[in-house]
Amino acid sequence: MFSIARPALSIFVGILVIFFFVRPLFSQIGEVQAEVDQYEETVRKVQEFNALLDNLVAQYNALSVSDLERLEAFVPHGEIDEVAALVDIEALADVHGLIFQSVKVGVIGEDDGEDGDFEEGGQVEPETVSPGFDASEFLTQDIDFTVVGSYDRFRGFLEDLEQSLVLMEIMKLSFSIGEGELVEYEFKVRLYGIPADEAVSTTNI
């Protein structure tokens, strides 16, 4: 009787071990394994992101201070310096022997409704400029002004205005010939800027 009880007890203990120790452990291992997989996937993504960031940092470091200053002048961020732009336009007109007059500075971000793109072409769907930044988010400011002078001088002024370091998009240009050689050229130019940066939390990545 005792001899039969021993193997039976062994089997019983084995079953107990499997059911009450091994099985719960397996269940826990499954959960931990899933967590490990998730962490490994996250680490892989973070490593990819870091590689991208490394590349961008390298690009950033390759830019000289003057390049960064030129970039800032081309499209300022935070606010548009319309006074500096006006000084530039006046200097340009002066260089070309044109009289600079009738200046009207618009309100930032508002189209005056008289002319320009929104009235003529209608509002277009904003395009994505950069991740998290649409074209509709550009800061804009319109400046109206008039230059007076000869056609040849106006042509030179126009070409230099197009090549200006500060981006000035000509939205409207009109003139009519009167008596004499001097003509009033009416311009509407648009200045662009990008809004101040919002801090991005890396913990959300």
């Binding site: 960031l53 961008l56 940092v57 690009q59 950033y60 830019l63 970039l71 800032e72 081309f74 499209v75 961020h77 395009e127 400029v129 950069s130 991740p131 998290g132 930044f133 074209a135 550009f138 042509r155 126009l158 070409e159 197009e162 981006l167 998009e169 000509i170 240009l173 662009y192 990008i194 940066d197 991005v200």
Partner: peptide, 22 residues
């Protein structure tokens, strides 16, 4: 880096659409 990337993208976008009426 994020700000610079956005700035460069914005400059590229505007430059691509910059017109020369001359």
């Amino acid at each position: 880096v994020y700000a610079l990337n956005r700035h460069l993208d914005a400059a590229g976008y505007l430059l691509e659409r910059h017109s020369a009426p001359s």
